[in-house]
Design a protein around this nucleic acid. Sequence first.
DNA 1: ACTATCGCTCAAACA
DNA 2: TTTAAAATGG
DNA 3: TGTTTGAGCGATCCATTTTAAA
Length: 552
Amino acid sequence: MSENARLPAGYYLINFETMLREASARYEDLLRPEESQLVDQFLALPLNARRLYVRMLMRKGPWFREDGLSYAEIEDLPKSSEILCHQGFCETEASLTDMVALLKRDEIAEGLERCGIEFPKALRREALLQLWVERTSADALTADLRLRYHFLRPLHEELWELVSFMFFGNSDQDLSDFVLADIGRIHYENYAVDTSARLFQTRHDIDFLRSMRSIREQFEEAKLAGNAESMGLLTDQVLAMEPHPGIRQQRRYHRLLNDVGREWERMEDFGRASRCYALSQLPPARERLARITQDPSRACAMAIQMAAAPLDPSEERFARVFLKRQGKREPEAARWTQSHPEAPPAPILRFALPRQDSVEMAVLEAARELGWAGFFAENLLWNALFGLVFWEELFAPVPGAFVHTFQNAPMDIATPDFFTRREIAIRARLAMIEDHAYLVRRVLETANAKWGVASAFLSWRHLDRAMLQAAVEHVPSPVMASILGTMAVNPRAFSSGFPDLFLYKPGSREWALWEVKGPGDALRPEQERWLRQFRRLGCSVALARVAWVVER
DNA sequence: ACTATCGCTCAAACA
DNA sequence: TTTAAAATGG
DNA sequence: TGTTTGAGCGATCCATTTTAAA
Ligand SMILES: [Mn+2]
Ligand SMILES: [Mn+2]
């Protein structure tokens, strides 16, 4: 579809009802009777009432003033508003707080004048409002505002959130995705949608995820209010939860445990923090647990265990640094450090450069003076190569992988299933790119054919064809196969930490990867991880350390 | 997966 | 009147 | 002095309208 395509009148209602229809068809049995009934009742409302209702749902709200709602395609808005209220889809009795929140600064000033209250002209909205509330009785103010304006608020918003969650499979996308696709802002791949697959088998699958979100919000609220008691109750609730077998549910749960634990750690309640971390199987739970453990020899034992089977590069890094530090006092730690010597991940190149906005661009310029050509590549380049080489595998019609038309990756992209369910195809593709001519063709042709099509691995806006071409021509096939093969096992986890600069010598096979570090910056564990892998593969890698010099 | 993430910067603690 | 942030809507 | 650690920041579709604050 082309940019600036005209949308049909009431497009938002069409989209809303499409979402409603598809979600309730797929998950009919997961809706409660009263929810299904509300859906039917909504669909039976007159067109203008449905339009007005959805217009409000799309806006921030939750309260509106009827005089602030005006749409060319909705005739007789007051009548629609009345129908909505009468049918139980809207309420009108706003609290004083909700009402005054909808008053503009000048309207508050007018109100003060009406009440004969003197005020300095330059007072800000907040101050004016405070003055009005202080000098008027709440009852009088409420009565005055009710008389002067009609307030309106759509009800049952939670139901539509549930429906949207069912439709998209997440709470991050919403109806604006329909619009972005229709006007051509985003082009989604034309994959086959699986109409029978279900992301959720039971209502509990959904409610568990929704409760994770709700508890997180409540905890955050209690934290901001400084309400330690409420935080404690929520924590007990989280700790007592029955584990859910779903992979996604577990990840959300462990994530919540980590964040809650971290907050107790900040508040120096290490007992509560430990209980949270002990239940979590997601980094950095083990690291936090080792850090707050009082007994140093137990902490070292934990670190040694972590080093033996790290869940991610941060665990590996932590264990090494921690054991090295404990080595003075703990003989076990000293023994481990001695038997696990580490080579530096990359040779260091030192630069003294005049200060610039971007330290990476400064080094890129310095490299150009040394005869290099190159790009600020970082994750962008390698993710793009991954997304292009495996384009067909990523969008392959694996059962359940695609459940609606607004996806930039299969649903299982962040799970171990992604690799296992496509292993044969992925291995076949890796074998094919061992042929360097095929690799070059594959990447450049796919880029041309798919330029602009939404993929989680491609930032077309920032991608540079010249960079792709240079990379694909200089990186040897076995290196490419090793890197992309590693990424394929867990594309999300391995999508970051790539070196800043991709460099090459024009007209030669020579190429290099440099990670740039300004003063005070240090290698992050994932960055070290990739540097070591590239180095193991025989690539030229370097750590470019920059010191700023005063230019004179 | 934009109450999420990644990478940079800064400052304090640490060795 | 100007500027910037927030909200809106295609 | 250099390194480690934790916290904080920016940047996301984008053109136009509304609102607040000078
Ligand atoms: Mn970087
Ligand atoms: Mn860097």
